[in-house]
């Protein structure tokens, strides 16, 4: 990939991320036998949010959130420039911490609860991401995405990594059943509740970036077989939407338990699988 192309991919990530999000919404609606919003709905939302009066609760709250968006964007850039997987994971952690701090910095009970829960869900999925990064390293011998994408396809070794990542995707994207940190019926969206207008648009666009972040993890599992990688992403996209539609939200402690038992467990199985059966 040329530098210009990578830059373009990173720079327009919030735009085509929005389209993915629109497709996601239509897909879910179709699963529920609804018509669903138009694919471009996220952009109509954006136009509407831009036209709203700019309300804020307090300045630090907004600033932390803006830096959440910026760091997340930086992480997405790093992905497209083929950066190191571990740096990307930790960069994402940093961005998430900014968001959590933003939630803590207002006096709203729901925002604070959302931050509490988000923090716990980070504790749940962060180890899984790291373990899976190690699995990828064991197979390809490198953490650099650019090198992984050039390596020959070795998906057989990464089957369990893929399964384990399937647990992370809904947790990061706050989808059912692992959406306790957002939980709009309980804590009214958690951290997101205190943002409005153009600032909410940033939180909204950050969702697209999060999508790109997690799905790129799945994409690189197929290494140089881009078609298979696309297939994996589409498959997990579909599977996650299906699960989102057919499960209730589980509580944050069940979330921790489930992620450690299945997600983390599969990560460990994956290491054993790679070391004992594939090398």
């Amino acid at each position: 990939m040329s530098i210009v192309f990578s830059f373009m991919l990173g720079f327009f990530a919030p735009i085509y991320g929005g389209i993915f999000y629109g497709i996601d919404r239509v897909l879910k609606a179709k699963m529920q036998r609804r018509k669903g919003p138009p694919v471009l709905q996220p952009f109509y939302d954006m136009l509407k949010l831009f036209s709203k009066t700019k309300f804020i609760v307090n300045a630090p709250h907004t600033i932390w959130m803006i830096f959440y968006f910026l760091s997340l964007w930086a992480v997405v850039f790093m992905i497209f420039f083929g950066g190191n997987l571990l740096y990307i994971i930790f960069g994402h952690l940093l961005a998430t911490v900014f968001f959590i701090i933003s939630g803590y910095s207002v006096n709203s009970i729901f925002s604070q609860l959302g931050s509490n829960r988000k923090l716990l869900s980070v504790v749940a999925y962060e180890p899984i991401l790291i373990v899976n990064a190690i699995c990828i390293y064991l197979v390809f011998g490198t953490f650099e995405i650019s090198e992984i994408l050039a390596a020959p396809n070795n998906f057989n070794s990464l089957v369990f990594t893929f399964l384990s990542l399937l647990f992370v995707v809904p947790t990061v994207l706050k989808l059912s059943p692992f959406d306790a940190s957002k939980a709009h019926q309980e804590i009214v969206g958690g951290i997101e509740v205190e943002f409005g207008g153009v600032f909410y648009e940033l939180v909204y666009a950050a969702k697209f970036l999060e999508m790109i972040f997690v799905y790129s993890f799945i994409f690189i599992l197929a290494s140089n077989d881009y078609i298979f990688g696309t297939f994996l992403v589409v498959f997990s996209f579909f599977a996650v939407a299906l699960v989102d539609n057919s499960t209730a939200r589980i509580k944050i402690d069940s979330l921790l338990k489930a992620l450690y038992m299945y997600g983390f467990g599969l990560g460990i199985v994956s290491i054993f699988w790679i070391l004992l059966c594939c090398i």
Partner: peptide, 20 residues
């Protein structure tokens, strides 16, 4: 990996109190 995540939780649990 688990211990590191828990330490993050520990620090930012306190951070929350600073901020609220």
């Amino acid at each position: 990996v688990v211990g590191s995540s828990i330490l993050v939780l520990l620090y930012f649990k306190i951070a929350s109190l600073l901020l609220s």
